[in-house]
Design a protein around this nucleic acid. Structure first.
Lengths: 96, 96
DNA sequence: GACATATGCAACCTCCAGGTTGCGAATCAT
DNA sequence: ATGATTCGCAACCTGGAGGTTGCATATGTC
């Protein structure tokens, strides 16, 4: 999940999608400095991670974000930092 | 940043830290199936990513989370999904 | 001092993520 | 039907991430 966002090209693709709306592979490739095949691989990877969703339209394959996954990641980070605060609290009580 | 969390070992380290509080390298290594050196490398990587912070205490080096970075990541994801909603809204107006 | 503990440094190895190239297949336009 | 787009498949290549090993260096303990 985080690995899916932990790559330059992929993060760019997500940003592109996130403020241009659904796009085809060719359109997405246009904004990058890599090959269409590389873009395709990244898109599939993110699809398996649950971040994206694809749909055929004519000869194109249109990709769009799956925002629920982002929300999930956000919740996860929130849990992490909350547990961290708790741990520091316990530590403070035991030490001080 | 997301790349820092996009690795199994690193995510485990973060989880361990997040609910046990600050720990030394040896203690952190105990919970893993890899070498102390590997753990050290990961810790430094996350330090450079701004996720962790270290402090010497005697002969130990104690690591702890830098929760501000997590908050930053959360904000970033929020921006992403908000822009996505906006993009879909524009699309809807133009098409429908 | 002698010994154990906790870490640092550096060289090395292996594997796969990220990328490319070449070709084939489906869809649209004229 | 011919050509131009848009995509899929498969083989291939390469750098660096993740890991290990061996040794050196501080710090604590007796």
């Amino acid at each position: 999940m985080f690995a899916a966002l932990g790559d330059r090209t992929r993060l760019r693709l997500v940003m592109r999608l996130c403020h241009d709306g659904p796009l085809s592979i060719a359109k997405l490739t246009a904004g990058t400095d890599v090959t269409r095949q590389a873009v395709t691989k990244h898109l599939r990877l993110m699809e398996e991670a649950g971040l994206l969703r694809a749909a055929r339209r004519g000869r194109e394959r249109v990709w769009e974000l799956e925002p629920e996954r982002l929300a999930e990641a956000r919740r996860y980070l929130e849990i992490i930092s909350r547990q961290w605060d708790d741990a520091l609290g316990r530590l403070g009580r035991f030490v001080g």
